[in-house]
């Protein structure tokens, strides 16, 4: 059985949903606290959404230095899968486990609504259950989701196929406003070079239960496996 650690920071608020989504696919999921120094034998780490440390200074900036993040760094360096959702994505960027940064939404408002995204890379630890090009409808809920990176970094991400999720352009007839935050290249999620570390702004854990009327996010959890598919 897969051991899935869901990291709880003070201010995490999607931790329970992430735990439940992992349990739904049969994983042994449990919480670890930000002051813990070990992951209790986790195969997979989930950094949930929320407002760790109140988003003080910058979203994710303080969480990055919590004791548990040393263990997450070691886990990722050893090829272990890590998924950062929303605030978790912000933390992964601050921790330099993923390149770039997430800034205030271009429209300045907190955006909470469903968006349509395309799965562009399926050779990652969390998207292998999807077909390449699959369109998903997932909720977003963030104030700081505008992905930015240096032009060289963006070129590299595109050239290496490391854009995992992209907001569907408006020209494709989505009923939802495309790109809710003004992110570069309409990026909604990226991976590291090995595909074991993935950060996304949308919330698949809030769309992982068909009883709640949305199952498009479940694939992120059914994809979970201790080994990472090679790109």
């Amino acid at each position: 059985m897969l051991n899935v650690a869901v990291v709880r920071f003070p201010g995490s608020n999607c931790d329970g949903d992430a735990l439940r989504a992992a349990e739904q696919v049969g994983a042994n999921a449990y919480f670890v606290w930000h002051r813990d120094t070990g992951l209790d034998g986790a195969d997979i780490v989930l950094l949930p959404g929320g407002f760790s440390y109140g988003d003080y200074l910058r979203a994710g900036a303080i969480a990055r230095f919590s004791p548990i993040m040393q263990a997450v760094q070691r886990h990722a360096a050893a090829g272990g899968p890590v998924l950062g959702i929303c605030n978790g994505f912000q933390i992964l960027c601050e921790a330099h486990l993923l390149p770039g940064a997430l800034l205030r939404n271009a429209g300045l408002t907190f955006v909470s609504k469903p968006v349509d995204v395309v799965v562009e890379q399926t050779a990652t630890a969390f998207t292998s259950a999807y077909e390449p090009g699959a369109r998903l409808r997932l909720p977003v809920a963030h104030g700081d989701g505008r992905y930015v990176a240096a032009p060289d970094t963006l070129r590299l991400l595109e050239a290496e196929g490391r854009v995992v999720l992209r907001y569907v352009p408006s020209s494709e007839g989505s009923p939802f406003q495309p790109n809710p935050n003004g992110s570069a290249n309409h990026i909604a999620g990226i991976a590291n070079g090995l595909g074991n570390v993935v950060g996304i702004m949308p919330h698949p854990e809030r769309a992982a239960d068909s009883m709640l009327g949305a199952g498009d996010g479940l694939g992120f959890f059914t994809s979970m496996d201790a080994k990472v598919p090679s790109p």
């Binding site: 200074l57 900036a61 230095f65 960027c93 601050e94 390149p99 770039g100 940064a101 800034l103 930015v148």
Partner: peptide
């Protein structure tokens, strides 16, 4: 290390 984000 902390007070500014060198990326942005």
């Amino acid at each position: 290390k902390l007070l500014a984000n060198p990326v942005t």
